[in-house]
Every structure is written in structure tokens, then in C-alpha cells.
Amino acid sequence: MLKKISRKNAIHVMLFYTGGCNGCDIEVANVAWSPRYDLEQYKVILTWNPREADVLAVTGPVLRRTIEPLKKLYEAIPEPKIVAAVGSCGVRCGIFKDFGGELGDSDEVLCRVDEVIPVDAYIPGCPARPEDIIAGIAAGIPLLLER
């Protein structure tokens, strides 16, 4: 009971850029920092420390250089945790995979986020709108309460 109320009332979000185009990253930072959206009024706090986080927001496809750090960061977050894949890049590699160039896909773009770590909330859009990001994180909260 107290567990659920406390979890509902304080959610720490962490942001990791695995390799999108920056658009989604700025939008997530924007949601937290711009007074118009003000994530904190919904009791969601942006943090940069995996040990503190509950929600890991991942933007972008997983690249060869960022796969190891992504795994490590995911491990560093204590349970319960949920992962939100932000932007169409996070959801299905967006424009950087399967787009039909002659040489095929790039070797550097490895895979979707949910092939590396379990993803709970998918927030599509290129870039995901701030309202969608808030809604997406909110959609993940019930999962957080259950665990």
C-alpha cells in the first residue's frame, strides 16, 4: 500500500542517448527543463544517475558503441525499473535501418532497443512530442507499481 503510494509519488527518469539524431533527446530534456511542460509537477524528476532511476528513457537505435554501456546502465538500475523507448528510432530503429539503400544497412546500427533490454513503453514519433513523452512515462507507471 505505502509502497504503491510512494512509487506513484516520486519517479526518477534517466535518459540515455544510444544514437538517434538528437531530436528526441532534446525533446526529453525539454520536457524536464522547459517550464511549459515541467515534468516535476507530475512528480517525475530527471536524474543522471542510474542508481537513482526508476525509468530509463532510451532514444535511438542501439549502435555498436553504445550497446555495452546500455547493458551496463540497465544492470546498474535497481529493481523495479521500466524502460521507455522514445521516438521511432527507439521503437524500431527509425530511418536508420531497413530503409533500402543499395549497400543495405550500416554495420554500426545494430538493433532495436528491445532486442537488448526489455522495453515496457514505446513512445513513437519522429521526434516524439513532449505530450507523448509524458503520456508514455505515465503509461508505464502501473507496471512500476506492480513489480
Partner: peptide, 30 residues
């Protein structure tokens, strides 16, 4: 860490489609 190999993805793409990728090079100055 951000290396995506965009030049390679673009190789041989129809120009209208390819130019959309140039936009996705950067999400600030797209």
C-alpha cells in the same frame, strides 16, 4: 559513439528519399 554510417545508408538511394535522411543527421539543425 554516435557513428551510424549515414553515408553508407544513403548510397544508391533515390534522391528524394535520401534527402530525408540528411535531415535526420541532426535533430537540432535539421
Amino acid at each position: 559513439p554516435y557513428h551510424k554510417g549515414i553515408e553508407r545508408i544513403m548510397e544508391g538511394m533515390p534522391v528524394h528519399k535520401g534527402l530525408i535522411i540528411t535531415e535526420r543527421i541532426c535533430g537540432i539543425c535539421s
